[in-house]
Computed example of a mutant assay.
Amino acid sequence: MLTAHPAILRDLVEQYETLRVLHAEEGTHASRQRLEDVSYTLCVSTGTRRTEDALAVAHRQLAAAPRVTDASPRTEDAAPAAGTDVRLTA
């Protein structure tokens, strides 16, 4: 099963928690929509259908993952720049 990068998952959980508080305080259509959007993304990222399940999976995955602060790809994983010659070797 594919899993989200720990930094991305951590960010989604933090966004969810922040938006949950914001929606509780404001109760606006916009705050509800933002909360629903991040909840959906969290569910997709964890392969779940309910926010409660997504949060539980996210917390389990984050507890098992090493602490990572940067979600950018490593240099060796990055695609070559346009116009760069690429030579494949065996």
Rank of each mutant, 00 (worst) to 15 (best):
A24S: 12
V57K: 03
V57M: 00
A56R: 06
A54T: 01
H5V: 04
S72T: 08
L35Y: 11
R60D: 14
A78H: 00
S39P: 06
L19K: 09
D53Y: 03
H59S: 04
R67P: 02
T48F: 07
D77C: 15
P80V: 08
A7C: 00
A64E: 14
V44E: 01
E26I: 10
A24I: 15
A63Q: 03
H59K: 11
V86W: 02
A90H: 08
A7Y: 07
T28N: 07
Y16V: 01
R10M: 03
E14I: 12
Y40C: 14
H29Y: 07
L88R: 14
R87T: 15
R10S: 13
R74A: 10
T48S: 01
D70I: 14
D85R: 13
H5M: 05
E25F: 11
L2V: 09
D11C: 12
A24E: 15
S31L: 03
L55Y: 02
Q61G: 07
L62K: 00
E76H: 13
A24G: 14
A90F: 14
A7G: 04
G47R: 00
R10F: 05
R87P: 03
P73F: 06
D37K: 15
V86Y: 12
T28D: 06
L55T: 12
T46L: 04
T48I: 00
T3S: 01
L2C: 03
R49T: 08
D37R: 15
A7M: 10
Y40L: 14
S31K: 06
H5W: 06
C43H: 05
T46G: 03
T89L: 09
V68L: 04
R32T: 15
A65Y: 10
Y40I: 02
M1F: 15
A79P: 09
R74W: 08
T18M: 13
M1R: 00
A65G: 02
R49Q: 09
L35V: 00
